[in-house]
């Protein structure tokens, strides 16, 4: 059975994707500016950013669909753009098909151009995305979600080692979104793929990815493991505090060094940020002032906070 017969690039120990100094301008507007990023083999990398941040432009540059004004792209160490694509499966924006052809015929076309994949591979790919029973229908009869899944099947043709996907769950219902997430996780875990996902859906990236890069106005504003980034960004500890007199507690907190009341939590609790002060120390101070503290609940920092902090200009 024909397969991607190139040597397994993942074994070479080089980054799956390495972008150095990537710059692309459209007239006077710089869409991507001196972008550097590195994706290691086996990563599920989330490429985040608001609309217009330059995510899709970056993906197009990586795939050679549009020219770069500056910079280099290496995929498994390879710089030749044609050879690079031997190892890459991609979905850029909404996947497009010849909608007068069947799903299977569209896959055959992709296989012909990839030079890989036979009828068994195509059937497997269709089975994997749950389209086996509709494969011989014309694509124009497919729902948006089915087209998205066919796009994933097409990206998997030729057994790529690196999957570049733009908004993978776009247009899918909750069940479909979950199926795609499970499929991507399986591809990483079972087949050893590296997946690079561009998205503005924070919850999705948080659920899926181990590493993220946040792009803002064409520049990478943060990159690293999700947990580390969130912790580093925060530099504090967030708690929710349940007391018998929230109004008095709020006034007292203004005088306590290292504690800031940052808002209201659930059920009348106070949201408090601690810097250099432990929850136990705060508890002792409040009890010492005659307040009854009934609960101290540690709060998880979310990727959303990191995202908002990294894309401040966009938020304003």
């Amino acid at each position: 059975m024909p397969r991607n017969d190139s040597p397994n690039p993942a074994a070479a120990g080089v980054p799956a994707l390495e972008v150095e100094g990537l710059t692309r301008r459209f007239g006077s507007r710089t869409a991507v500016h001196d972008l550097h990023l590195k994706v290691e083999p086996g990563d599920l990398y989330g490429f985040l950013g608001p609309n217009g941040a330059g995510k899709t432009t970056t993906m197009r540059c990586i795939l050679g669909l549009i020219r770069r004004d500056a910079g280099r792209v290496r995929i498994f160490g390879e710089e030749n753009p044609v050879r690079q694509r031997t190892w890459v499966g991609a979905i850029v924006e909404t996947p497009r098909f010849h909608d007068w052809m069947t799903g299977r015929a569209n896959l055959e076309l992709a296989c012909a151009y990839a030079g890989q994949g036979d009828a068994t591979d195509r059937s497997e790919a269709l089975q994997r995305v749950g389209l086996a029973d509709r494969a011989d229908d014309r694509v124009r009869t497919y729902s948006h979600g089915m087209k998205q899944r066919l796009g994933i099947a097409r990206a998997l043709v030729g057994r790529p080692k690196l999957l570049l996907i733009d908004e993978p769950t776009n247009g899918l219902d909750p069940r479909g979104m979950r199926e795609v997430r499970d499929l991507l996780r399986m591809l990483v875990k079972r087949d050893g793929l590296t997946v690079f996902i561009s998205s503005h859906l924070l919850a999705e990236i948080e659920l899926l990815c181990n590493r993220v890069g946040i792009l803002d106005q064409g520049k990478l504003s943060a990159e690293g493991e999700v947990a580390t980034l969130v912790r580093d960004l925060a530099g504090d500890e967030l708690i929710e505090l349940a007391v018998d007199d929230p109004g008095r507690a709020r006034a007292l907190l203004q005088a306590v060094e290292g504690a800031d009341c940052v808002g209201d939590g659930v059920a009348g609790r106070l949201r408090v940020s601690l810097r250099g002060l432990t929850p136990a120390e705060l508890n002792a101070r409040l009890v010492g002032e005659g307040l009854a503290v009934s609960a101290i609940v540690p709060q998880d920092r979310r990727l959303e906070e990191l995202y908002l902090a990294s894309t401040q200009q966009e938020v304003r």
Partner: peptide
């Protein structure tokens, strides 16, 4: 215009061959 050309250009073949 339909963006199906993009799907071919993302394959490992030189543009002239397409």
């Amino acid at each position: 215009k339909e963006r199906t050309l993009r799907e071919l250009l993302a394959r490992p073949v030189p543009r002239w061959s397409i």
